[in-house]
Amino acid sequence: MATSTPEPGPDERLFTVDELASASGLTVRTTRYYASLGLLPPPAKRGRMAWYDDTHLARLEMIRALQEHGFTLQAIEGYLASLPADAALEDLALQRAMLTAWAPPGPQEISRRQLEKHAGRRLGEEQLRMLEDVGIVRRTEDERGARFTPLQGFDVAVELLDLDIPMDGMRAAGAAISHHIDALATDLTRILRDEVVEPHRQRAHTHQETERFERTLTVLRRLTLEAIVSAFQRSANDLIARSLQREQGEASHREAR
């Protein structure tokens, strides 16, 4: 349940509902709808005007971050209800920073025809199953029939379908990538939380310093992704070099015999 909003301090920004919607990138209708669900605390009343502050904005931005991760509004309501009623603005900002997706969200659930239009080709059942097996497409069933959600990497996976590669090999490669990436994501998220976010949380910060820290996390995400790609390329090159050296050594050994 939403709690009452304390009177804003002298340095806090105040928004009308139109200004709040604009700042959060939502429509006024959507903003009012979220408020009607209790996802936002009531605004402060001054005469006949309703005023919102940075805490309302932080909650709206958190709702958007949760939606990017596939949370339903019911699940979002439960998550927001679990937060302390007196959570400071900086705490909300840090919570959202940890939730922010590492890449833009993919398309929402679409029909098979729309999926094939997005792919630019017809997709057979075996190809669809392969895309599901490697975690690139999610399939659900509702009253309209089968629905599909293409995830990050869908365009790359579709290109792979045109290569002369056995699908079992593609599934095995997808499983290997998923296994190691899951472990890497777990480790990197733990390091980010324990070594970067938590030390920042332990100190008092102004709103401007928190916003600057959020921008730092955005850059850190980009650099981390670039570092992962570079590390894989370096490791693959080292593996090729070691393999060539081993083959050269074995050839020299056979010639010596």
Rank of each mutant, 00 (worst) to 15 (best):
187 D>K: 10
190 R>F: 05
205 H>E: 11
197 V>I: 15
173 A>M: 02
189 T>V: 00
178 S>N: 08
194 D>K: 06
165 I>C: 05
208 Q>N: 05
205 H>F: 03
178 S>E: 12
164 D>E: 13
188 L>V: 04
200 H>P: 00
199 P>D: 09
205 H>M: 12
209 E>F: 07
207 H>Y: 04
172 A>V: 02
207 H>C: 13
181 I>R: 10
189 T>S: 09
194 D>E: 15
192 L>S: 01
166 P>E: 14
187 D>Y: 09
171 R>A: 14
193 R>K: 13
169 G>T: 04
188 L>T: 02
202 Q>F: 00
164 D>C: 08
190 R>S: 15
205 H>G: 07
169 G>L: 09
178 S>P: 01
191 I>Y: 07
175 A>F: 01
183 A>Q: 03
198 E>V: 15
190 R>I: 01
174 G>A: 11
204 A>T: 15
204 A>I: 14
169 G>H: 04
176 A>V: 10
166 P>Y: 10
198 E>C: 11
192 L>R: 11
177 I>Q: 07
184 L>T: 00
180 H>E: 08
168 D>T: 12
197 V>E: 02
178 S>Q: 08
182 D>C: 11
193 R>E: 06
199 P>A: 07
179 H>G: 05
203 R>N: 02
204 A>M: 12
170 M>F: 05
169 G>W: 01
197 V>F: 01
203 R>K: 06
196 V>H: 03
172 A>R: 14
201 R>A: 03
210 T>G: 01
169 G>F: 01
187 D>E: 08
175 A>G: 13
175 A>K: 13
184 L>C: 05
210 T>W: 05
165 I>N: 04
194 D>P: 11
207 H>L: 15
203 R>M: 08
210 T>S: 07
209 E>S: 10
206 T>Q: 06
179 H>W: 00
181 I>K: 07
164 D>S: 12
170 M>E: 01
199 P>C: 14
182 D>Q: 15
177 I>L: 11
171 R>E: 04
169 G>V: 03
185 A>P: 06
208 Q>D: 11
196 V>G: 03
167 M>T: 13
195 E>S: 12
186 T>A: 10
204 A>H: 05
179 H>V: 03
209 E>A: 14
180 H>F: 12
181 I>P: 00
176 A>Q: 09
201 R>H: 01
200 H>D: 06
182 D>K: 12
205 H>T: 11
193 R>C: 04
